[in-house]
Amino acid sequence: MARVVMLVALMAALVVIPSHAFQPRRILYARCSAEEKMPRAVFMTCANRRGVCEVRVGNTHNLRAVFIPDINSTTVDSYVRWNSWFEVPLPGQERDACDGEMECPVIAGHVTRFTYSLSIQDFWPRNEYPVIWTLTDKETDTPLVCFKFKINIV
């Protein structure tokens, strides 16, 4: 009887969880510059378990950065771009980080979590790209955090 209950529960879980759901994992990232603050951790829902984070065309992948800002901020600009030959902003990005991506106001010295849902569009060229992400106080134009990482669009 216990096996039947466990089998039914497992089958129900497989039906509820879509096959395209990706599990978040910690990804490798680097500092943008010596002057800019780096996050404590960066997580992303990747299609693969290790290596450069694979993101699939037609899917949405979530990114989460955990950081401790040095300044207070009530309005935060989220600017993501890829850097191949030159920096190119990602099309259709939501720039207002306080509009659902993080809790505002941001308080200096407190752990802050930024979460972003990145839709991988069909027209994006498949390749590996370095990505640069900056969160900046809009009033003073002071970066709160900046980090670089790679994605592989497949």
Rank of each mutant, 00 (worst) to 15 (best):
M1L: 15
A2K: 09
A2F: 10
A2Q: 10
V4I: 13
M6D: 11
L7E: 06
V8E: 10
L10A: 13
L10S: 09
L10H: 03
M11P: 01
M11C: 14
M11V: 13
V15H: 05
V16D: 01
I17Y: 08
P18F: 05
P18Y: 06
S19Q: 13
S19R: 13
H20G: 01
H20C: 11
A21G: 01
F22E: 06
Q23V: 14
R25V: 07
R25Y: 08
R26M: 13
I27V: 15
L28I: 10
L28F: 09
A30H: 12
R31H: 13
R31L: 11
E35P: 00
E36S: 07
K37H: 15
P39N: 08
F43E: 12
F43A: 09
N48W: 06
N48P: 03
R49E: 12
R49A: 15
R49S: 15
R50G: 03
C53V: 05
C53Y: 01
E54R: 11
E54T: 06
R56Y: 05
G58T: 09
N59S: 13
N59F: 08
N59I: 00
N59L: 13
T60N: 10
T60H: 10
H61S: 14
N62D: 12
L63V: 15
R64P: 01
A65I: 05
V66G: 01
I68D: 03
D70I: 04
I71P: 00
S73F: 03
T75Q: 14
D77Y: 07
D77L: 10
S78D: 08
Y79F: 13
R81A: 08
W82L: 07
N83M: 14
N83K: 14
S84K: 05
W85L: 09
F86G: 08
E87W: 07
V88R: 07
V88N: 03
G92F: 05
G92T: 11
G92M: 12
E94R: 15
R95E: 08
D96N: 14
A97Y: 03
E101I: 02
E103L: 14
C104Q: 07
V106E: 02
A108V: 02
G109L: 04
H110A: 11
H110V: 12
V111W: 03
V111C: 07
V111A: 11
V111E: 15
T112D: 01
T112I: 07
T112E: 07
F114D: 00
F114P: 00
T115C: 05
Y116R: 02
I120V: 15
Q121E: 11
Q121A: 12
D122G: 11
W124I: 05
W124G: 00
W124F: 15
R126S: 10
N127H: 07
Y129E: 02
P130L: 02
V131H: 02
V131C: 01
I132D: 01
W133N: 00
E139L: 13
T140K: 08
V145E: 03
C146Y: 04
C146T: 05
F147I: 00
F149M: 04
F149N: 04
I151V: 15
N152W: 02
